[in-house]
């Protein structure tokens, strides 16, 4: 009983630590300019939707007051983010799951080296490969295209996806597909019909991480695009008015941009919880 209370208090404290800054960002998005920097900080304030309205070009005249010219570019770039991050996540999770299964179940020649090679692709600081990527992309005509960024983000996430999925695949008992094989399934059928459903919780977790990484990638989104395929993160960071950082509008952009990922994670949680049930059957 005491333990339960202590646990409850601990969870609340931890939640406060993780959520207070988030609350602060969201609150800033509803604050009028002077309230944003008020000393002491304002927890109660007269809210405004103006930052959201300017972000979506509903009230451009308000944005003009802060020195913004022309339309806010947020809506089209947000759409780009959805397309690019979404597709690249699906691809890297799919490829990662396949490879992880094969690594987990079969004897692969040079398995350890291959796995380490996959991991090492994540280690080079991105700053140095910026120019070579640009050079290749320009030669292939991939600059400022959706496909270009999708390919890139898929690659970036692959190492993570393979390694994490392998961790989950190793946990699924071999008896599962052996039973299926005896029942007359082919290997491929056994994988798709028996293993994949068992791996859903791992897939969900991996997808969440890949989505987050692709959703927020900044450096390559900036240098490899100029207009058509530019995603939202570089343009959120560039929201500035006459006096520098336009905190209210940046906060509004961040909040809107955060929502899809939170919603996705929330729905995927159900699958994460499946871990409980399949654990019981195991071994």
């Amino acid at each position: 009983m005491v333990w339960k209370m202590v646990k409850g208090i601990l969870i609340v404290l931890v939640l406060i630590f993780f959520l207070l800054p988030i609350y602060w960002i969201v609150a800033t998005s509803f604050k009028q300019w002077p309230d944003i920097f008020a000393i002491p900080p304002k927890f109660v304030f007269r809210g405004t939707f103006v930052h959201y309205l300017t972000l979506f070009n509903i009230r451009p005249e308000e944005a003009a007051k802060f020195g913004q010219v022309g339309k806010s570019l947020f809506p089209p770039r947000f759409l780009n983010s959805v397309v690019i991050a979404g597709i690249s996540t699906v691809l890297s999770v799919a490829l990662g799951t396949f490879s992880a299964y094969a690594f987990s179940r079969f004897r692969v020649r040079g398995e350890n080296d291959l796995l380490f090679f996959i991991l090492s692709t994540r280690m080079l600081p991105p700053i140095v490969v910026g120019i070579p990527f640009f050079v290749v992309y320009r030669a292939l005509g991939l600059i400022d295209t959706h496909i270009g960024l999708i390919l890139l983000y898929m690659t970036f996430n692959l190492s993570f996806s393979v390694w994490l999925m392998k961790g989950f695949m190793d946990e699924i008992p071999r008896e599962f597909e052996e039973a299926a094989l005896i029942d007359g399934y082919t290997r491929f059928e056994a994988f798709f019909k028996v293993i994949l459903p068992q791996a859903l919780s791992g897939i969900a977790a991996t997808a969440v991480f890949c989505l987050i990484a692709a959703w927020n990638e900044f450096f390559f989104a900036l240098i490899l695009t100029s207009e058509k395929a530019r995603t939202a993160p570089p343009s959120i960071a560039a929201i500035q008015g006459t006096s520098g950082i336009n905190w209210g509008q940046i906060a509004a952009g961040v909040t809107v941009f955060l929502l899809p990922v939170v919603v996705f994670t929330f729905f995927v949680r159900k699958y994460l919880a499946r871990g409980l049930t399949f654990g019981v059957i195991k071994r």
């Binding site: 910026g130 240098i223 560039a238 500035q240």
Partner: peptide, 25 residues
Amino acid sequence: KFDFVAWAQYTDKILVTLSAHDSSY
């Protein structure tokens, strides 16, 4: 067409486009 880039990334962007002899701008 203007591409406005935040100052923190301004040199990065110029450096990459120029060193790659890019015609985007």
